[in-house]
């Protein structure tokens, strides 16, 4: 019986893994710095909708390894987000921001 159960478990888990796993997991999309690519030179701190792309659900800044920004523009993003927070356009702390 134990053997039977083990077999069942083994089979179901194999199928479940197929369907539960993220289908996009193999697609590693190449990251790039959109500011360099599209020649955006200035980041507006009065545009919270744009800045929302660079913060996570808690309103924290996303790291460069996720956004793909170059260091120069990541720094500008950081200052812009901080200014937007000061002007209450973005929250300092949040939950379920997106």
């Amino acid at each position: 019986m134990a053997v039977q159960r083990q077999r069942r478990a083994g089979r179901t888990s194999r199928e479940d893994i197929k369907f539960l796993s993220n289908p996009n997991i193999g697609n590693n999309r190449k990251k790039y710095c959109r500011f360099r690519k599209y020649g955006i030179k200035h980041i507006d701190y009065k545009d919270p909708d744009f800045l929302l792309q660079f913060i996570n659900e808690q309103g924290k800044l996303l790291p460069r390894r996720i956004t793909g920004n170059s260091l120069k523009y990541q720094r500008k993003i950081a200052t812009a987000v901080k200014r937007a927070r000061h002007l209450a356009m973005l929250p300092y702390v949040a939950d379920l921001l997106k």
Binding site: K46, P48, R85, A88, M89, L90, P91, Y92, A94
Partner: peptide, 11 residues
């Protein structure tokens, strides 16, 4: 004049 906006937190 950006106008009336909701604040992200109360001031």
């Amino acid at each position: 004049e950006i106008g009336l906006k909701q604040l992200a937190y109360s001031i």
